[in-house]
Amino acid sequence: MEDIKEVLSIFTRLEGVNAVCLVGRDGFLVDSIVKKGMDAEMIGAIASGGFGSSESMGKQLDKGNLTMTMLEFKEGPVMLAPVGDDTFLVVAADEGANLALIRLAIRRHKNKLAMATAGL
């Protein structure tokens, strides 16, 4: 089984990615790699509300399970994606980061993260 930090570092090696957090659905941080000065605990807590409300929206509109949420800001995107039943991933990047590569990395590596967190 791969180490959570190892998997998270795959994301931070992508150009423009400056924060990646694995967060419990309750908003408590499991692990993270963030740029100096960022409060990963707070990112997790706030992202949990956003993730939860996106899921509720899907439920309300009968859209099935959430696969990814993207928030676009002037200075770059923030992506939220479920990882297993109990956690989700937050990836924050700079403006101009390659979104397709980030999406691909999420799709490719989320199962590894889910397996790594299963025993926690």
Partner: peptide, 15 residues
């Protein structure tokens, strides 16, 4: 619970 789901609501109260 309705707006953000039970897990996130739980996290808010615990935090």
């Amino acid at each position: 619970i309705t707006l953000v789901g039970a897990a996130s609501a739980k996290g808010i109260l615990m935090r």
